[in-house]
Protein backbone atom coordinates (compact mmCIF):
# COMPACT_ATOMS: atom_id res chain seq x y z
CA UNK A 1 0.00 0.00 0.00
CA UNK A 2 1.13 3.51 -0.79
CA UNK A 3 1.89 4.97 2.63
CA UNK A 4 2.13 8.57 1.47
CA UNK A 5 -1.39 8.37 0.08
CA UNK A 6 -2.73 8.00 3.61
CA UNK A 7 -1.52 11.45 4.49
CA UNK A 8 -2.49 13.43 1.41
CA UNK A 9 -3.94 16.81 2.29
CA UNK A 10 -7.09 18.22 0.68
CA UNK A 11 -4.95 20.53 -1.46
CA UNK A 12 -2.71 17.67 -2.61
CA UNK A 13 -5.74 15.58 -3.56
CA UNK A 14 -7.31 18.55 -5.36
CA UNK A 15 -4.13 19.11 -7.39
CA UNK A 16 -3.81 15.38 -8.11
CA UNK A 17 -7.36 15.49 -9.44
CA UNK A 18 -6.52 18.35 -11.80
CA UNK A 19 -3.36 16.55 -12.90
CA UNK A 20 -5.25 13.30 -13.51
CA UNK A 21 -7.81 15.14 -15.64
CA UNK A 22 -5.33 17.13 -17.76
CA UNK A 23 -4.58 14.52 -20.46
CA UNK A 24 -8.33 13.92 -20.84
CA UNK A 25 -8.85 17.61 -21.53
CA UNK A 26 -6.91 17.20 -24.78
CA UNK A 27 -9.87 15.20 -26.06
CA UNK A 28 -12.55 17.28 -24.34
CA UNK A 29 -11.41 20.66 -25.74
CA UNK A 30 -12.15 19.93 -29.43
CA UNK A 31 -15.41 18.30 -28.38
CA UNK A 32 -16.50 21.41 -26.47
CA UNK A 33 -15.53 23.58 -29.43
CA UNK A 34 -17.66 21.53 -31.81
CA UNK A 35 -20.56 21.85 -29.41
CA UNK A 36 -20.14 25.66 -29.50
CA UNK A 37 -19.98 25.64 -33.31
CA UNK A 38 -23.06 23.37 -33.65
CA UNK A 39 -25.06 25.34 -31.10
CA UNK A 40 -24.56 28.67 -32.86
CA UNK A 41 -25.14 27.19 -36.31
CA UNK A 42 -28.41 25.67 -34.98
CA UNK A 43 -29.51 29.23 -34.25
CA UNK A 44 -28.96 29.40 -30.48
CA UNK A 45 -27.97 32.80 -29.14
CA UNK A 46 -24.33 32.88 -28.03
CA UNK A 47 -25.35 33.44 -24.39
CA UNK A 48 -27.84 30.53 -24.42
CA UNK A 49 -25.28 28.23 -26.03
CA UNK A 50 -22.72 29.18 -23.38
CA UNK A 51 -25.15 28.85 -20.47
CA UNK A 52 -26.20 25.39 -21.59
CA UNK A 53 -22.66 24.22 -20.92
CA UNK A 54 -23.03 25.09 -17.24
CA UNK A 55 -26.79 24.51 -16.74
CA UNK A 56 -26.90 21.12 -18.45
CA UNK A 57 -23.14 20.34 -18.32
CA UNK A 58 -23.38 16.97 -20.11
CA UNK A 59 -21.70 16.84 -23.52
CA UNK A 60 -23.60 14.12 -25.35
CA UNK A 61 -27.05 15.44 -24.36
CA UNK A 62 -26.02 19.00 -25.29
CA UNK A 63 -25.09 17.72 -28.77
CA UNK A 64 -28.41 15.96 -29.03
CA UNK A 65 -30.32 19.07 -27.87
CA UNK A 66 -28.76 21.40 -30.45
CA UNK A 67 -29.37 18.86 -33.21
CA UNK A 68 -33.02 18.67 -32.12
CA UNK A 69 -33.26 22.46 -32.27
CA UNK A 70 -32.28 22.16 -35.93
CA UNK A 71 -34.97 19.55 -36.54
CA UNK A 72 -37.68 21.49 -34.72
CA UNK A 73 -38.35 18.64 -32.26
CA UNK A 74 -41.05 19.26 -29.57
CA UNK A 75 -39.68 20.40 -26.19
CA UNK A 76 -41.11 17.46 -24.23
CA UNK A 77 -39.39 15.01 -26.60
CA UNK A 78 -36.07 16.83 -26.20
CA UNK A 79 -36.31 16.76 -22.40
CA UNK A 80 -37.22 13.05 -22.24
CA UNK A 81 -34.47 12.05 -24.68
CA UNK A 82 -31.81 14.03 -22.81
CA UNK A 83 -32.98 12.51 -19.54
CA UNK A 84 -32.69 8.96 -20.89
CA UNK A 85 -29.27 9.66 -22.44
CA UNK A 86 -28.08 10.89 -19.05
CA UNK A 87 -29.48 7.92 -17.11
CA UNK A 88 -26.04 6.31 -17.16
CA UNK A 89 -25.04 8.94 -14.60
CA UNK A 90 -27.21 7.10 -12.06
CA UNK A 91 -24.75 4.21 -12.39
CA UNK A 92 -21.87 6.62 -11.74
CA UNK A 93 -23.77 7.94 -8.75
CA UNK A 94 -24.14 4.43 -7.30
CA UNK A 95 -20.49 3.76 -8.03
CA UNK A 96 -19.04 6.79 -6.18
CA UNK A 97 -21.67 6.85 -3.41
CA UNK A 98 -19.80 4.53 -0.98
CA UNK A 99 -16.67 6.71 -1.21
CA UNK A 100 -18.38 10.01 -0.41
CA UNK A 101 -21.08 8.78 1.95
CA UNK A 102 -19.54 10.52 4.97
CA UNK A 103 -19.69 13.99 3.39
CA UNK A 104 -22.13 16.83 4.04
CA UNK A 105 -25.13 17.41 1.80
CA UNK A 106 -23.46 20.48 0.27
CA UNK A 107 -20.46 18.38 -0.76
CA UNK A 108 -22.76 15.75 -2.24
CA UNK A 109 -24.58 18.42 -4.24
CA UNK A 110 -21.37 19.91 -5.61
CA UNK A 111 -19.82 16.54 -6.49
CA UNK A 112 -23.09 15.40 -8.11
CA UNK A 113 -23.13 18.49 -10.29
CA UNK A 114 -19.55 17.71 -11.37
CA UNK A 115 -20.18 13.98 -11.97
CA UNK A 116 -19.61 13.91 -15.75
CA UNK A 117 -18.31 10.91 -17.72
CA UNK A 118 -14.77 12.23 -17.81
CA UNK A 119 -14.49 13.41 -14.18
CA UNK A 120 -16.16 10.25 -12.89
CA UNK A 121 -13.95 7.91 -14.91
CA UNK A 122 -10.72 9.51 -13.73
CA UNK A 123 -11.84 9.83 -10.11
CA UNK A 124 -13.22 6.30 -9.73
CA UNK A 125 -9.84 4.81 -10.73
CA UNK A 126 -8.28 6.89 -7.95
CA UNK A 127 -11.00 5.94 -5.44
CA UNK A 128 -10.45 2.24 -6.15
CA UNK A 129 -6.74 2.40 -5.36
CA UNK A 130 -6.12 1.06 -1.88
CA UNK A 131 -5.38 3.91 0.50
CA UNK A 132 -6.84 5.27 3.70
CA UNK A 133 -6.84 8.90 2.64
CA UNK A 134 -9.91 10.64 3.97
CA UNK A 135 -9.51 13.46 1.48
CA UNK A 136 -10.16 11.60 -1.75
CA UNK A 137 -13.32 13.60 -2.44
CA UNK A 138 -11.02 16.56 -3.09
CA UNK A 139 -9.60 14.59 -6.03
CA UNK A 140 -13.05 14.41 -7.63
CA UNK A 141 -13.53 18.11 -6.91
CA UNK A 142 -10.21 18.90 -8.65
CA UNK A 143 -10.93 16.66 -11.65
CA UNK A 144 -14.48 17.99 -11.90
CA UNK A 145 -13.42 21.64 -11.61
CA UNK A 146 -10.73 21.16 -14.28
CA UNK A 147 -13.22 19.56 -16.64
CA UNK A 148 -15.87 22.21 -15.90
CA UNK A 149 -13.46 25.08 -16.66
CA UNK A 150 -12.25 23.38 -19.83
CA UNK A 151 -15.81 22.74 -20.98
CA UNK A 152 -16.82 26.40 -20.48
CA UNK A 153 -13.72 27.75 -22.23
CA UNK A 154 -13.89 25.35 -25.18
CA UNK A 155 -17.61 26.11 -25.60
CA UNK A 156 -16.76 29.82 -25.70
CA UNK A 157 -13.98 29.17 -28.22
CA UNK A 158 -16.39 27.20 -30.42
CA UNK A 159 -19.02 29.95 -30.28
CA UNK A 160 -16.36 32.53 -31.11
CA UNK A 161 -14.82 30.55 -33.99
CA UNK A 162 -18.23 29.58 -35.35
CA UNK A 163 -18.19 28.16 -38.84
CA UNK A 164 -14.41 28.42 -39.14
CA UNK A 165 -14.03 24.83 -37.88
CA UNK A 166 -14.87 22.62 -40.89
CA UNK A 167 -16.50 19.23 -40.18
CA UNK A 168 -13.82 17.50 -42.28
CA UNK A 169 -11.41 17.91 -39.36
CA UNK A 170 -13.39 15.17 -37.66
CA UNK A 171 -12.95 16.77 -34.26
CA UNK A 172 -16.01 14.97 -32.89
CA UNK A 173 -13.92 11.79 -33.11
CA UNK A 174 -12.06 12.99 -30.00
CA UNK A 175 -15.06 11.88 -27.89
CA UNK A 176 -14.49 8.23 -28.81
CA UNK A 177 -10.72 8.68 -28.35
CA UNK A 178 -11.17 10.20 -24.90
CA UNK A 179 -13.31 7.29 -23.77
CA UNK A 180 -10.86 4.78 -25.29
CA UNK A 181 -8.07 6.45 -23.31
CA UNK A 182 -10.02 5.97 -20.09
CA UNK A 183 -11.69 2.59 -20.66
CA UNK A 184 -8.89 0.48 -22.15
CA UNK A 185 -6.42 0.84 -19.24
CA UNK A 186 -9.26 -0.05 -16.86
CA UNK A 187 -9.65 -3.46 -18.52
CA UNK A 188 -7.25 -5.39 -16.33
CA UNK A 189 -8.69 -8.88 -15.84
CA UNK A 190 -10.87 -11.46 -17.58
CA UNK A 191 -14.08 -10.24 -15.92
CA UNK A 192 -13.61 -6.61 -16.97
CA UNK A 193 -12.60 -7.71 -20.49
CA UNK A 194 -15.74 -9.83 -20.91
CA UNK A 195 -17.79 -7.01 -19.44
CA UNK A 196 -16.45 -4.56 -22.06
CA UNK A 197 -16.79 -7.05 -24.91
CA UNK A 198 -20.42 -7.91 -24.11
CA UNK A 199 -21.33 -4.23 -23.56
CA UNK A 200 -19.83 -3.27 -26.93
CA UNK A 201 -21.62 -6.10 -28.75
CA UNK A 202 -24.95 -5.32 -27.07
CA UNK A 203 -24.65 -1.65 -27.98
CA UNK A 204 -24.30 -2.64 -31.64
CA UNK A 205 -27.03 -5.32 -31.61
CA UNK A 206 -29.58 -3.05 -29.91
CA UNK A 207 -28.71 0.07 -31.94
CA UNK A 208 -32.29 0.29 -33.26
CA UNK A 209 -33.70 1.18 -29.82
CA UNK A 210 -35.05 4.74 -29.44
CA UNK A 211 -33.60 7.39 -27.07
CA UNK A 212 -30.17 5.75 -27.24
CA UNK A 213 -31.55 3.11 -24.88
CA UNK A 214 -29.02 0.71 -26.43
CA UNK A 215 -26.52 2.42 -24.13
CA UNK A 216 -28.46 1.42 -21.02
CA UNK A 217 -29.11 -2.11 -22.35
CA UNK A 218 -25.40 -2.51 -23.13
CA UNK A 219 -24.32 -1.22 -19.72
CA UNK A 220 -26.65 -3.62 -17.90
CA UNK A 221 -25.52 -6.61 -20.00
CA UNK A 222 -21.85 -5.64 -19.52
CA UNK A 223 -22.24 -5.34 -15.75
CA UNK A 224 -24.12 -8.66 -15.52
CA UNK A 225 -21.52 -10.49 -17.61
CA UNK A 226 -18.68 -9.01 -15.54
CA UNK A 227 -20.36 -10.09 -12.34
CA UNK A 228 -21.07 -13.58 -13.66
CA UNK A 229 -17.49 -13.99 -14.87
CA UNK A 230 -16.18 -12.79 -11.50
CA UNK A 231 -18.18 -15.40 -9.57
CA UNK A 232 -16.95 -18.37 -11.56
Amino acid sequence: MDRTAEKTSPLQEFLLGIKGELPILLGVTPFGMIYGVLATSAGLAAWDAQMMSSVVFAGSSQFMLVQFVNLGTPASMMIITAFVINLRHALYSASVAPYIQHLSLLWKFILSYLLTDEAYAVAIMHFQEPSNSKNKHWFLLGAGAALWSCWQLSTAAGIFLGAQVPPSWGLDFTLALTFIAIAVPAINDKASFLSALSAGLTAILTRGLPFKLNLIAAALVGITVGLWSDQK
Binding site: L91, D117, I124, F179, A183, A186, I187, L215
Partner: peptide
Protein backbone atom coordinates in the same frame (compact mmCIF):
# COMPACT_ATOMS: atom_id res chain seq x y z
CA UNK B 1 -17.89 -2.88 -13.98
CA UNK B 2 -19.75 0.40 -14.45
CA UNK B 3 -16.95 2.49 -16.01
CA UNK B 4 -15.74 -0.18 -18.42
CA UNK B 5 -19.23 -1.30 -19.50
CA UNK B 6 -20.68 2.19 -20.00
CA UNK B 7 -17.65 3.65 -21.79
CA UNK B 8 -17.32 0.66 -24.15
CA UNK B 9 -21.04 0.93 -24.92
CA UNK B 10 -20.39 4.52 -26.06
CA UNK B 11 -17.12 3.81 -27.91
Amino acid sequence: FVPVAVLTAII
